[in-house]
Structure formats: C-alpha cells, structure tokens
Design a protein around this nucleic acid. Structure first.
Lengths: 350, 350
DNA sequence: GTTAGCACTCAAAACAAGGGAGTGCTAATA
DNA sequence: TATTAGCACTCCCTTGTTTTGAGTGCTAAC
C-alpha cells in the first residue's frame, strides 16, 4: 500500500498537508491567505492559489461553493492517512492503563475500553467482543434444574462460559446425568468445533442409548452457541460525541449515525469486514464511502483488531467526522490494542 | 389519586381536552378559531377565547408567546392523563403477540419487547431485565475448568443462570468437587438470599473442612451476583424516534436524551423509582420534571411494571415528547405488560 | 351569555443591501 | 520563468426592513 506521491511536487504535498491539518482544527474551509501565513514556506497567497487550483484539478481538495476556501476530498484524506501510516510505524511506548481497572469479566473490560477510548478521543467508539471462531470446547456440564429442564453449561476456550436451558420430556436421574456428562466430556473435551462431525455425533448418540435425544439437544445447543453472528456482542460509548461536530449533527446525519449504533447490525458488518481483511494488527481507516456501513458515509472510521489468545479476535473502532485527528486516534488505538493483547495473552489471572 | 375537576366546568373540560388532543396531533399551538371548528359544541372563536383565557389563568394551558395559540402545560397534561386513567380501567382484550416470537432466552424476549414497543408507538423505549431481588437459590454447581480454576454455575429462581470463574490455589479432585456440590446444594437449595446468614456460612465452612476457602469464594460469588445494581440490564430501542418530534430534536435536547439512553445510569434510576413506587400493575406517567431523570425534563415518561414470577420484577418504559399519544401508549403498555406476565407465569415452557 | 368586529401583537417568512472572504486572471516584477 | 500585487467578480452570510397572517383582548351589539 505504498503512497503514490509521484504526481505531486514536494511543495504541493506540504500545502495539501497544511490544508488538511488546518481544516482538521477549524472545520472551516481554508483559504489561500490563511495558508500563506500558516505554512513554513514563505509564499504569497497568489502563489498558493495557483497550487491550490492544481490540487483541485487533481482531486485532492474542492470548494464547497465558488468563492469559498478549500476542503480536503476523500482522496485527499486518503493520501494524508497513508502518509501517516508510513511515518508512524514506531513507538507505542506510552501506555494508558489509566482508567483500565481490572475487572474479571470480559464484558466489563470491553465496555470499559469503549468508554476510555471515547473520553480519550471525543469520538464515538465501539468494541466488539471476541468472536469465538475456530474455538475449542473445553468442558460441558449438564445439571438438573427442574423436573423436565436441565441446564447445559458450556465452557469454551478462553474461558467463555455459555449456558442454555434444555427441555427434556422426561425426568433424568442423577445417575443418568452423571453418565451423560462423562460421555460428553471424554468424547468432546478439547475438540475444536470443526472436529465435531456427523459420524462423531452418531457414535455419541449410540453410546447414549435411550437418552440419545438429550445428546441431540445438547449438541444443538453447542451449535447454536457457536454460531457467530448470533451473539456478537458490541459495546459502544460516546455516541453523543458526534454532536460536537457540526457537520455531523444535523438531524439527518445524527439520526443515521446514532441508529447505526443502536441497531448494532451495521456495526456487526463493520466488524466482519475488519476481521475479514487479513492483516491482523494493522490499523484500518475507512474514509467516507470506503466504510462498509452506509449510514456512515459522512464519517471516517478507524478500526483495529485485537486478539484474546486462542484465535479469538475482536475489533475496536472509532467513528468520527472525516476531519478527525487521525494521528491521535491511530496512536491511541494502537496503544489500546496492544494493551488488550497483553492483558489476556500474558496474564489471564488477576 | 382522584382527579379534581371541581374547579372546571363541563365546557372548560371539553375545551381543554380538545386543545390537548389537537396539540398531540399537530405539535403546533392551537388557536381559538381552530377549536371552534374542531369541537362538537358550536361556539364561536370569541367564546372559546374567553374560556381559554380562564384556562390559562388556572394554569392548564399557556402561550409560548403573545399572539400565539395555546399549549397544554404540565398541569394540563396531568389532568388529561388522570382522566384517561379513570376511563381506561377496562379491556385489555386485544393481544399483540404479533412480533413476539418465542425465544427461550430472557434477554432476547426483552430486547424484542423493546423493539416491538418502539415500532408500535414511534417513541423511544426501554425494558429492564427483572431484578432478582428477594430471590431464591435454586441450584449451585461447581466444575473444574483448569488446574486452578473452577466455574460456579448458579441458577436462581425463574431460571436465571449466572456463572463465575473462581481461582483456587490448589487443584481439587473430582471427588472433592462432588462433595462440595453436595454440601452446597443440600444446605442452600431453595433458600432465599436473605436466609443465608453468617451463622449458616460458618457452619458450611466448618463442614467443608480444609476446603472452607473455596466455600468462601463461592458465597462471595453468590453475593456478587445477587447484588442488584451490578447487573441491572436494560434494553432500549427506537432512540432515534425522538428525531421525529421537532421539539426534542434540537442539538441540546437530543444529546441529553440520547446520552441518558446510552449511559443507562439514568435509566436505572428510573427503573428503581418505578419499582419503588408500590402499586404494582399500575401504569405510571411522569410529565416533564416529574420524572426522576433530569435529562428528560422535556419529555413524558410512561412506565409499567411486569412480573416474571417469584417476585422478579422489571420495568417497561416509553419516552417521548410531552405531547405523546397517552391513550395509545397506555393501552399498548398494558397489553405488553400482561403479555409478559402471562408468558412467564403461566407457561414457562415453549 | 354569546358573538361580531376591530385594533393590536408578534413570530416567521420574504426581501434587500452591505460586508467580506475567497477566487481567477492579468500585468508587473525579480 | 516563477512569483507576486492588484483588481474585478462571485457568492455566502449577516443584518435590517417589510409584509403577512394567525391569534389575542376588548368592546359593543345581539
């Protein structure tokens, strides 16, 4: 993903960068006079104007209307971000364990992470809980709850615990349950989901004899729990930060963005896309239409993937105006990413 | 809570009601001319004006500015709602099982309920998961997960299942676990939380012998899980509906309301308040400042309490503009309330 | 007690004028 | 030849003014 700067002179690059940075701060179109003061190179506004005309021809900037200053186009932002990417392959030195208290439940950590991120950046944020994809089954336990109900507790790799109530048409004796538990665990423990084949299931059922139906139910439960989209939990925070940016806070935009956050479906798409696009620990930046979420066409979305060990990956994302502070955001994201990586990979205990 | 209509003539009541209903529809201040056509009683605008002047003196309506029509005041709304309350102690005949599919997880049902409600009313909605207050312990199961980790699965009355990972400093044998499980269940099963006294705990630990520490951890887990505020889950939907009402969709208001929905804390207060105010199956209406949530001072909030059996209560709430369609909302709420009551009380199975 | 009529008020819409930031182009300059 | 100063032009935004119209309060007539 090398940046193609060949078509731009050094000076044009500097001017473009100046335009973007200035616009990031103010949110107002920036004019030639402003720039002639703002930049290092001592050039008159007229010269700048000429350069700006060129940059506009090349599609990096545009005027919202005649006789207004220039605003970076998506293409302009893209160039800028790509430059940042190359520059910033460097220190992640500082950590910000600041507000990240220890909390033993994954959920809470993630919710907390979203909050920290939001308060740190002033943008809207989301954190997706890790998807237990090609995961391993660690442990299954059936227990009697009511006459005709048992609960299946299923522990997955990474100590994700799920449970499901199963209706059985009969009352099972303690003994039977014990036997079934034994059977299930000796057969399935440590298995990855993909390893559970039809043949295996048939064999299990055979061994269960008259209780094969129960086994069926249990395996259904396992399948359901594994099914990814079903329970992709997503935590959000700072949604209302968008009101801080006039260009996003008109009724139309605000409604679109906020409902994307509430409905979650669109965020799920975003997560899926992010996870799909290989390159694990890279930071990804979607500008405007580039994002797979149509409600965010007026935003920029910056995402990172983190890993909770054993192949469980989740996504952190920041959603803000196109003129977001990419530099800061990318840095913060990287920090949090490595923080999450660290907490769970090296040191699962408190 | 009888309505004090003594101070108002029959005619004034009719006019007030007409003003409110008209304003509910249009959202615009309503003038005397409009009313003289709108009402049954054939009165000229002039007469209506006189009556309106009186109503304004009494504080039921007011003008947003001179030479504008009248708008109901909080007091006006209150009177209107109270009248509705008395009228509508009647049929809940129709059900709207429409979209309420069966879903065996409580969470999903509630999330679904919030959605149905939102799409049905066009307001923002919230449903709080039942608080397992003076609840009973149905079942506890400890299982080995890792060398030094066990998981405690705790089933509460109403089949609410919780789990928690417990770090133990030692590896427990299967036998020991079995013994501990037995001990815990014979002692605690069917007990309400309040019945677990210090004395009881001491006795348990004594019986557990060298494993008393584990028992301690388990009981801590139980305590933590019981602790109400900790996990009051609240499901929301249709937040962006507020953009449908101009009086709520300016930046300021929108931000306040939406962040109340996101932060949840304020919603929790609302739930607490609702649950606290006795009168179980009543519908409660908070108009403007009456609500315990300051961010909703420009809204009306209508809530209902439902019960999932065994004393587990939750709250359903609708948040909208003051000019909400109280009649429809209250009816819908009642239906859903009895629906939830029914599903779980009479017929827990599928 | 009710109504018609009239003068009055005020918010919102429509319009007009001026200011100002910014541009493109041309001609002068280094 | 690249840069700059200067100027005419554009167009948005602000401000002020006018018009319109819905609505009121009051008074006098029915």
């Amino acid at each position: 993903m090398a940046v193609d700067t060949s078509s731009l002179s050094e000076r044009k690059l500097i001017i473009l960068k100046a335009i973007i940075q200035n616009y990031l701060e103010t949110g107002e179109p920036v004019g030639s006079r402003t720039l002639s003061k703002y930049t290092e190179l001592n050039l008159s506004s007229a010269t700048i104007r000429n350069e700006m005309a060129d940059l506009e021809d090349l599609g990096y900037i545009f005027q919202p209307h005649t006789s207004a200053g220039r605003i970076p186009s998506d293409k302009g932002y893209r160039l800028y971000v790509d430059m940042l990417m190359e520059e910033k392959e460097q220190e992640i030195t500082e950590r910000e364990d600041a507000m990240l208290e220890k909390a033993d439940k994954v959920e809470k950590v993630l919710q907390q992470a979203a909050k920290v991120l939001a308060s740190n950046t002033n943008y809207a944020t989301m954190v997706s809980a890790p998807v237990n994809n090609r995961n391993t089954l660690k442990f299954i336990q059936l227990s009697q709850v009511d006459e005709e109900q048992i609960v299946a507790v299923i522990v997955l790799g990474g100590n994700v615990i799920k449970n499901k109530i199963i209706e059985v048409g009969e009352t099972l004796s303690n003994e039977t349950l014990l036997k079934l538990n034994m059977l299930l665990n000796t057969t399935l423990n440590g298995m990855s989901i993909d390893q559970i084949t039809l043949g295996l299931i048939a064999r299990l059922k055979e061994q269960a004899g008259i209780h094969s139906e129960v086994i069926g139910h249990v395996l259904d439960a396992v399948a359901e729990i594994i099914h990814v989209d079903d329970d992709m939990k997503i935590y959000t925070s700072g949604t209302t930060n968008i009101f801080k940016y006039p260009e996003l806070s008109d009724k139309q935009s605000a409604q679109e963005i906020i409902s994307a956050f509430e409905e979650k479906q669109q965020l799920e798409d975003l997560v899926t896309e992010t996870l799909a696009s290989g390159d694990d620990h890279a930071i990804q930046v979607y500008i405007g239409d580039e994002a797979p979420v149509k409600n965010m066409k007026d935003c920029s979305v910056v995402t990172a993937t983190y890993e909770l060990g054993e192949g469980m990956k989740g996504t952190i994302g920041i959603i803000g105006p196109k003129r977001m502070d990419y530099e800061h955001v990318m840095k913060t994201l990287k920090t949090l990413q490595s923080e999450l990586d660290a907490i769970y990979n090296k040191n699962p205990k408190e």
